[in-house]
Amino acid sequence: MTTYTCAIVGTGAIAAAHAEAVVQSAGRARLVGAVDVQPDRAAAFGAAWDVPAYASLTELLEAQRPDLVHLCTPPGSHLALALECLAAGASPVVEKPPVLSLAEFDRLRAAEAEAGVPVATVFQHRFGSGAVRLRRLLAEGVLGRPLVASAHTLWFRDDDYFAVPWRGKWELEGGGPTMGHGIHQFDLLLSILGQWTSVTAVAARQARPTDTEDVSAALVRFESGALATVVNSVISPRQTSQLRFDFERATVELEHLYGYSDADWTLTAAPGTPDVLSAWESGPADTPSGHTAQFTAVLDALDAGRRPPVSTADTRVTMEFVAAVYASAFTGKTIEQGEITEGHPFYDSMAGSGVPWLDAARSVR
């Protein structure tokens, strides 16, 4: 059995989920080091997980030469760190959002191709057994055509949450809940419904002291003909994460908050389709969504010599969707898939040609 060595960069809250995933791998992976810009925090994390702490990624890479490096830092630092990992022959496992723009993402893909070392993005909701089952039944034709869907991430973050210097800033976080919160739910939606073709969206700053939006909503068309709504909010006191898929032969619904198990899914069969329910109730075993589920899939892929999920090809579909939401919201136009390319205002920044409320504030000054 191959044992993969792993390091963690950025020892904030989400780092514990990554460390736990490695520990839960039953010897298939082991932690060999951690890095944080705050030495005391790195030392505390290292002590908690029994690994050495390093002053920089450069020092860690030289000392340990890890197979995988989990990037758990703020989004604005992801690209530079991932490029350094690739140059050293280590595979970056990058928390969402992976980078700040499509331009940065294409730089990452080019470096990945040059290094011959794969990159994986953390979109852990793809890997719970409910999502695995849903994709399988759709592919097998059990559910019929997808017709209507929704992905609503209705969360609450108060003003203190945005007091952290990098939050709510386009140049540091890349966007608001469209980029950093709802991305998990609509990535799952996209992984099930396939290629989107157009987006018509709105976004606003309703209540929070941010440069970015605190709510967005989009209407989406897919190659299959399906239509979907996607809502992303951090101003909703009753928090919930909801997905709904209406197929020809069934409605499938998921409601949870930050992670789900099979108990959070429901299926309602259309009249006269009893086989749908029995198909839904057949395997796989209940596996909660989460970092452990995705990391297991990453290890399985590496053992088999395959590119680990979620690949940069998969992630680019989601990142282009994010850019399309902002482009549509800030220009008032419907954005077609493939429209945002080099030279487009929203290729280099999710803020694109300008953010209405920031432009209005500048004009007053």
Rank of each mutant, 00 (worst) to 15 (best):
V230Y: 01
T240F: 05
D211M: 04
S241D: 12
L188Y: 11
A201L: 05
H152I: 09
S216Q: 08
V230T: 12
P237S: 03
D160Q: 13
L147F: 00
H152E: 12
Q195I: 04
T240Q: 13
F222D: 06
D158A: 00
S198N: 09
N232R: 03
V230R: 11
V234L: 07
G174R: 06
L147W: 00
I235K: 02
L147I: 13
R205K: 14
F162Y: 14
V220R: 09
M179C: 07
A163R: 15
L172P: 00
W196S: 05
G194D: 02
R238P: 15
Q195G: 03
D160G: 13
Q195D: 14
S191F: 01
V164T: 14
I192R: 11
V230E: 00
T178K: 02
P177Q: 01
F162E: 05
T229V: 12
A226N: 06
M179L: 04
T229N: 12
P209A: 01
V231D: 13
L219D: 15
T153V: 05
L190G: 01
P165Y: 06
F247S: 09
L172N: 04
W155I: 10
P177E: 02
G225I: 10
A226Q: 00
Q239D: 02
V202G: 13
V202F: 03
I183V: 14
E171C: 03
S198V: 03
T153Y: 06
G180K: 03
G168S: 05
P209H: 09
S198Q: 14
A228F: 04
Y161I: 11
L227Y: 07
S236M: 02
A207I: 02
A203D: 01
T153S: 15
V215H: 05
L190V: 08
G180C: 14
A201I: 10
V199H: 08
A204Q: 13
T212A: 01
T240H: 11
A149T: 09
I192G: 06
Q206G: 01
R208N: 04
F247K: 15
S233P: 07
T197K: 12
E213K: 03
H152F: 05
S241H: 12
V234A: 06
S216N: 04
W196Q: 11
H181G: 01
E173D: 09
K169F: 06
A204N: 12
R221K: 12
A226R: 05
W170F: 06
F162M: 00
D159V: 13
L189Y: 05
V215C: 01
S150F: 03
L243Q: 15
S233M: 06
S233I: 02
V230I: 15
G174A: 06
F156S: 14
A217C: 07
Q242G: 00
A228G: 02
G168T: 08
F245S: 06
L227A: 09
R157L: 09
E213S: 06
W155D: 14
P165M: 03
